[in-house]
């Protein structure tokens, strides 16, 4: 998966109506709540085989940080 595809997916994961950008601060999103974090955990597990933990998500601030959590599974 490349970054552009992931950003579209992320919009759906968060059930957000505006596009997500790599530099966005997640804390500025109204939708960045516990539900969204759970959705990210489930999505990463299913699609990347990456088990993201609660601690990992607490350290994340930007969309870019979220991308790096996949450990290189999202290409440019």
């Amino acid at each position: 998966m490349n970054k552009a595809d992931f950003l579209v997916e992320l919009e759906d994961i968060l059930q957000r109506e505006e596009p997500c950008k790599e530099g966005d601060n997640l804390n500025d999103y109204e939708e960045w709540d516990s539900l969204s974090k759970m959705s990210v955990m489930a999505y990463y597990d299913k699609n990347f085989g990456v088990k993201v933990s609660l601690k990992d998500l607490q350290t994340v601030t930007t969309v870019e940080d979220l991308i790096s959590l996949t450990g290189g599974k999202i290409s440019d």
Partner: peptide, 25 residues
Amino acid sequence: NPEGKEVPLLGGYMNGLAVFDFTIK
């Protein structure tokens, strides 16, 4: 709580994210 929500001290407690973590793992 860490989610920025006020919860009653004397109520039942659930750490939703930790439980979700357990559940999917």
